[in-house]
Amino acid sequence: MADPVIALERVTLRYPTAPSPTLRDVSFRVEPGEFVGIVGSTGSGKTTLLYLLAGVIPHYLGAELDGDVLIHGRRTQELSLARISERVGLVLQDPEAQLFNLLVRDELAWGLENRGLARAEIASRLASTLSFFRIERLQDRITYDLSGGEKQRVALAAVHAIAPEVYLFDHPTSQLDPIGAAEVIAAVRRLAERHQLAIVMVEDKVDELVEHADRLVLLDGGRIVLDAGPREFCLRKDLLDAAGVRPTQMAELSARLIEAGLKLDVPPITLEEMTVALRARLRS
C-alpha cells in the first residue's frame, strides 16, 4: 500500500457552540491517484470533514479536536494554512463564496500570481486550464455574470491552476445539468489518474460516484459507518437506509427484484450491468 497523502487518525471534533461532537472517532486515508466519494445526509459531518482536510479547521475555524489530521505524515496543526493550500485545493459548494476577481482569466491567474510564478508560466498554465475544462470562451467574461454552472466550472478550474496534489470538492456539480455534472466528475477522474492526484468529493449524486470513484465513504451522525468499493457500498441497504442515503436506481431495482424472488447472483448496480443481467431472461 502506498503512503497516504492525507489521513485522519481517530479524529473527534466538536464545535465550541455545539452540544455534541460533529465527527466521532473518524479514521480515513487517501492515497495518490485515489478518488474517494463522501456521502451522507445533511448534518452528517461531510463539510466538516473537508474543512479538516483543508486545514480550514483549526487554522480558520476553531474546534475542539482529538486525534490527528496528517498531510504526508505531518500534522496540519503544525503547518500554516498557506503551506497547506499549496498541496490541498478546496472547491466550495457555493462558487460565489469563492470567486472574487472581475474577469474569469484573472480569477484563474490569481492563485498563480500569489505564488510568484513567472509570467510565461502563468500564461501557459492559464491556457492549459482553460482548455482542460473547456472554458476558453469564458475567459473574458465577468465572473458574477456567469450562470451557476459556469461559475462552478471556473471555481474548479481556479483550484486546478494552482496544481495541488489533493483536491477536495464540496458538491461540485450541484448547479450543473446532468451531462455537465457527468463531464465534470469524469474530468476529475482523468485528473486523478493522469497526475496521481488524491480526490475527496462530497457529492449526493451516487450514480456518478459509482461510475468514477474508487471508494465511497458513508457518514452517519459524524461516524464513518461504511468505507467500501462502489458495489459493496450500494448493496449495504441497511446502512444506507439508516443514513438516509439512496444507492443507484439500479441497485434499488436489484433489491426490489431480489425481494420479489428473482435470482441475481451478482446484483447489478449500473445500467449496463442490469441490461446484461435481464436481456437474456425476458420474454419478448
Partner: peptide, 11 residues
C-alpha cells in the same frame, strides 16, 4: 427555481 440545489435526496 432549482428547489433541490444543495439538498440531499431526503430534503
Amino acid at each position: 427555481d432549482e428547489p433541490t440545489t444543495g439538498q440531499d435526496m431526503a430534503r
